[in-house]
Design a protein around this nucleic acid. Structure first.
Lengths: 235, 235
DNA sequence: CCAAAAGTGTTGTGGCTACACCCATGA
DNA sequence: TCATGGGTGTAGCCACAACACTTTTGG
């Protein structure tokens, strides 16, 4: 194969910021790095890109390795390229963020990587520039969720409106008026009310809803307004 | 230096989608590729990342090589990683898009690369996946400009409101009501009216405005609404 | 005096926010 | 029966979109 001469070839990795929601808090799935350098310190799950893979395929592979899950919401965040970001050898990392239903993960948990869920508000220090990646992912998710119904990716098939509200409130670290919130959400037409109630979290019980998947994929790109006064929350 | 063993190292390039606005049309700056493969075909300006550079530095370098300009608006778009996107050798490309004042460029034009401005609507076929990059950049810019005052980056220091409107209309390939448009733009408080008029484009003449740079940088992240019915335009 | 583009105001409507009370249930 | 969280309606306000005529001036 002909080659471009005189150019430097570099390691390319993908790192995954994995978000989850446990019904009341936003969480992040981290692993305890098993090899030097920085052995035992907390880190995002990552891996090097392989010869025949696209970045997207690599990110999906890495995610599946850790969680066992496929067909997960995954979005390219940004490439990080500080020449010394990895002290061992120059590596460019392309960060992806994933939104997973935390319950699905728990069913398939692998202890191989010493993975743990951390509260997003209460994260350990991470290696390299992983902390920056998480900050950026949070910002991007806030931005995106203000306009598109992406947060449903974090919920199980059935969920209640109070749960959904807790999810938004967790992401934006604030509280919303529940009357306005439920009106706004229901007015999208994305939710289908079920007959059963969730009786675990209150005495009265809250009705379950499911996502209308057809409308969801049709309207995903639509420009909605989920968050009042977005200026306040979107830096 | 210790190294990660058994991993493949890959070429990493940056490619720049360079937008300009000539007062009535949106344009794209392309070069005619000077070497094989695909010699003589039109292409985005790009270059390989160097050992001590970040991607951002590389993109700025590449942009300066072609245009002579520094301190230009430049934003990372996405990494493109199809294993066969470059037939010579596997290369991952990180695309950046740039917004430049076309007049500044014309002052510093370099003929070294056989660069030419093309109408965005009327582009030649590009090599590799550059066509996809341009499409994505257009989409991203439409999205961004609907919410943030980023299009001012394309204008010279003095500009008129009709010019500004033509700029928005070019990007969204539509027409806006001029009364609503000017009211909306002026209500941001970002513009400072000048005393002179531009007499080149009409008999009556249109007042020049300048950008209030302090307010511009303060409000850049603010969540505005420049485009009526954004759903229509933002896929 | 005519053509061509700049500039400017009003009104109706719909969507947003703010706000408070009743309901169902398990303990 | 009481404590807890679920569920619901309204009114005022503001922002938006739709719309047409006058002004300026160069030729």
């Amino acid at each position: 194969m002909i080659k471009y001469i005189g150019q430097t070839r570099i390691l390319v990795a993908v790192d995954c910021i994995i978000f989850g929601f446990d019904g009341s808090d936003f969480k992040l799935l981290l692993i305890q790095r098993g090899f030097a350098p920085e052995k035992k310190r907390w880190s995002l799950m990552g891996g090097f890109i392989q010869p025949e893979e696209t970045l997207e395929v690599a990110a999906n592979r890495v995610l599946k390795q850790l969680t066992g899950l496929e067909d997960v919401y995954l979005e390219q965040l940004q490439a990080f390229s500080g020449p010394d970001r990895d002290p061992v050898e120059r590596t460019i990392a392309v960060a992806y963020f994933a939104l997973i239903d935390i319950h699905k993960y728990e069913k398939q948990i692998s202890h191989e990587y010493h993975a743990e869920w951390f509260l997003l508000k209460d994260m350990p220090q991470l290696i390299f520039d992983h902390g920056q990646m998480v900050e950026l992912a949070k910002k991007r998710l806030r931005y995106k969720a203000a306009l598109h119904p992406v947060l449903f990716e974090l919920l199980p098939e059935r969920f209640t409106i109070p749960q959904l509200q807790a999810l938004y409130e967790g992401l934006y670290e604030t509280e919303f008026d529940k009357r306005n919130f439920s009106r706004k959400i229901l007015s999208t037409g994305l939710l289908v009310k079920q007959n059963e109630k969730d009786k675990e979290n209150s005495r009265k019980g809250a009705f379950y809803y499911k996502l209308d998947k057809r409308k969801y994929s049709e309207n995903f790109q639509a420009f909605l307004k989920f968050i009042p006064n977005p200026d306040k929350f979107l830096v």
